[in-house]
Amino acid sequence: MNILSFFARKEPSASVAKSRLKILLAHERGNDGADAALISSLREDILEVVKKRIEIDADAVHLEMDRSGDTTTLGIDIELPRSA
């Protein structure tokens, strides 16, 4: 346990709920499926590029989007075969 987690506990769960909701809803309003479309086309593109050099499976490319506060990060995880 570090000292940060000790202080973090003091925040009432209701305020955590409120900020989670605000971030989520700000994103969901007017973004009906746009992210999903972006992620899947990005995934296709990445797969294409990697495949030029390495033989990989179609489901070896994982994309993850993380929205927190004002920033959104995109995590790309590509599983390579043993022989590569």
Binding site: P12, A14, K18, K22, L25
Partner: peptide
């Protein structure tokens, strides 16, 4: 529970 901060308050829900 709302007073203790364990539940979203009325103002929170209205605000969101």
């Amino acid at each position: 529970r709302a007073r203790l901060g364990d539940m979203l308050s009325v103002d929170d829900v209205v605000d969101i």
